[in-house]
Amino acid sequence: MTLQQLRYFVATVESGFNISRAAQVVHTSQPGISKQIKLLEQQLGATLLNRSAGRIVGLTEAGNRVFETAKRVLRETDSLAHMGQDFLREESGRLVIATLHTYAQALLPHAAARLRDRYPRVSIELQQSSPGRIIELVRGGDVDIGITMEVPGPRSGVVALPLMTVPRLLLVPVHHPLLQHERVTLAEIVRYPFVVQTTLSAGGWAVNQVLKARGFAIEAAVTATDASLMKAYVEQGLGIAIMSAPIYNPERDLGIRGIDISHIFDPSEVTLLLDPYRYQRGYVLQFIHLLAPRWAPAAVAGEIRRFMIENEPVDLTAASHASAAPGR
């Protein structure tokens, strides 16, 4: 069994079982991929791909198990390569973060600035995505870290580090009638038109969940993903908005006011996600520490070790033989 065989097998599955597309991904020929996959099946003693009329139509049970483990092996191999690069140039590289728009604007800039001060040769790339997609990006090794409001399940394949809780505010124009209330209610809030966030935002997800659970609906006067645009429309009186508290700065946002709604909406639980099988470069660990001082590099390493002990990987050969055993 070779790493090349595992790469060809994984590329074939991730290309939708299109051998031609997989060959382009791994820069080889179609016959080469087919030959190596057949050799892999022979060495494992199990059929990995379901074939019909000469075409690959899916994975067998053994194929599913080998596919998950093969991806893990390849990620760990890539981690070794990154580790070698780290020894040579620890202070340069790229930090890729998948997150929600609200968090990118309100929670990350300060830590990003401090990281750049410490590592001026490290570039930072932000990828805006939905909570579910962020988990997929981390698990697939497409980003270094994910920052989201969704806590993944125990079988998600990613390490979840609780970062912080973030309260929400109701933003209204300076002379809005709701400012006269000592304690606003949800029934009073939904009487007014809203400036809303799309489902890619932290606020949009949480607010929609609460509204549905309590049987309320709102009138969306304006829909936007950019927090600064939302505040501008609130200031112009087009609607009110529910947003993460760090978005509102009373010293700068002079045309709007913030109303406490902590009795209606729970604070957001901000969670940081890591691929436990990916080598975490020094500047990645430092960025996490800058975001949340409780997560010093040693603490992060300890959490990753705990996760890996609890989720011990399956042996490839054992997985294939178990799935290929009689009676299965």
Rank of each mutant, 00 (worst) to 15 (best):
A113P: 14
G32H: 03
G63P: 03
E310C: 13
I145R: 04
T165F: 07
N311G: 08
I37M: 11
G45M: 01
E150A: 13
S201L: 09
L200K: 04
Q197C: 08
H101K: 07
H82E: 11
W295M: 01
G327M: 02
H27V: 04
V172R: 00
L186V: 07
R133V: 15
A324D: 00
S15F: 05
P313Y: 12
E125P: 01
T60H: 02
A202I: 02
R183H: 05
V196N: 03
A241P: 12
L88T: 10
S156E: 04
M149K: 05
S268D: 15
S34K: 14
M164T: 15
A299Q: 14
F265V: 11
P120E: 10
S129L: 04
L273M: 06
R183A: 06
R51Y: 14
G54W: 03
L290F: 02
A292E: 05
R72Q: 14
P193Y: 00
T223R: 13
I124M: 03
P162W: 04
I97K: 09
M308Q: 15
V96H: 08
G141H: 05
A53F: 11
E61I: 06
R51L: 09
S29D: 14
G140K: 02
S228Q: 15
F307A: 11
I264L: 15
E188P: 00
N18I: 10
E14Q: 13
H263E: 04
R75L: 15
V151A: 10
L290H: 03
Q30L: 08
L316I: 06
Y277R: 08
R72N: 08
S268V: 15
P120V: 06
G16M: 03
E312Q: 06
A22Q: 07
A318C: 06
P193D: 01
I33A: 09
I247T: 07
S323I: 06
G58N: 01
A301D: 11
A232E: 14
L44K: 09
Q42A: 11
L274T: 00
Y279S: 10
A81I: 13
I256E: 05
L238N: 00
S29N: 14
